[in-house]
């Protein structure tokens, strides 16, 4: 039970955005993709979600190539959780979660009792059932992120792709959302997130994929990837990685602080 990305390459015209990216994610794992802006994280996700066709390589879910799956089939295996956005029309939270069940339905049907039960179950699982009748646009950013996670769960996909789930949240919501996501991996979900925060990636991830210039710079356990050389190269600044609490936490700080201390 795993998702395998093999030699994935993608180019827009002549510009190579992804160069032979490979990695593997197991169910129950939390994987973070680190890299500077414009490195191709979104393009990688789009290829994995079947939105873009890679020029080379493929993505396998449980040994099946995603390019052989229909949109509905794919959506039952892998779900996308965008950054909490501001949709044009204000839907109720329950309606948004119900939209995740659409792939289960016939073309001309709307969600019924069974889907409604699933949606409420998912909301309860995330402790946000009391939001169900609120308008999506009137709740906070952290709550929106949880609602979008609920939508993905209602989709019954086991692989969740998240685009910087914590980037627009305040300190408290960031911890709440990340803890919730970590909890999902313990239930057997496979979570793949992109993030700009190496400290957070270290704290929550089972594996880290560091991307540089469209290619894999480092791939492996957080202890191996969140280190001075990788992080400094990744972001083009001198970084010192400090270890705290028996290496349960690592903090990246600009290296000039070291100079000041000395």
């Amino acid at each position: 039970m795993s998702m395998i990305v093999e030699n994935l390459s993608f180019s827009y015209g002549t510009a190579d955005v992804l160069k032979s990216v490979s990695f593997r994610a197991e169910y129950g794992e939390f994987l973070s993709v680190l890299g500077p802006n414009g490195v191709g994280k979104s393009t990688l996700f789009r290829c994995m979600l079947g939105i873009l066709m890679p020029s080379q390589g493929h993505t396998l879910i449980d040994d099946r190539d995603i390019s052989e799956m229909t949109a509905a089939e794919l959506s039952k295996n892998i779900a996308y959780i965008p950054q909490s956005h501001n949709p044009v029309f204000n839907y109720s939270v329950l309606d948004i979660v119900l939209m995740g069940t659409t792939a289960q339905l016939g073309k001309f049907s709307s969600p019924g009792k069974e889907q409604r039960r699933q949606a409420i179950e998912v909301l309860e699982c995330l402790n946000i059932a009391d939001l169900q009748n609120r308008g999506y646009r009137s709740i906070s950013g952290g709550e929106r992120q949880l609602v979008l996670i609920a939508r993905a769960m209602a989709q019954q996909a086991k692989i969740l792709i998240m685009d910087e789930p914590s980037s627009s949240l305040d300190f408290g919501n960031r911890i709440r959302v990340m803890d919730t996501i970590k909890g999902l991996t313990e239930q057997g979900y496979c979570v793949i997130q992109s993030t700009h925060d190496p400290d957070q990636a270290y704290q929550y991830s089972d594996k880290i994929l560091a991307m540089y210039g469209g290619a894999v710079l480092a791939w492996g356990k957080p202890e191996e990837t969140v280190c001075d050389t990788v992080i400094s190269k990744l972001y083009g600044v001198d970084v010192e990685v400090c270890s705290l609490r028996n290496d349960r936490i690592r903090v990246c700080i600009p290296a000039k602080n070291k100079i000041i201390k000395e």
Binding site: R46, L49, G50, I51, A71, A72, E73, L74, S75, K76, I78, A79, Y80, P82, P87, V88, F89, Y91, D95, M99, G100, T102, A103, L105, K107, F108, S109, S110, P111, R151, Q155
Partner: peptide, 23 residues
């Protein structure tokens, strides 16, 4: 009338709709 539920999903844009299993 028949497709009205699916119309909701289109309001989130093509890419999001596709990840929810809609062509």
């Amino acid at each position: 009338l028949l497709l009205r539920w699916r119309l909701n999903i289109l309001t989130f844009g093509d890419e999001e709709a596709k990840t929810m299993g809609i062509n």
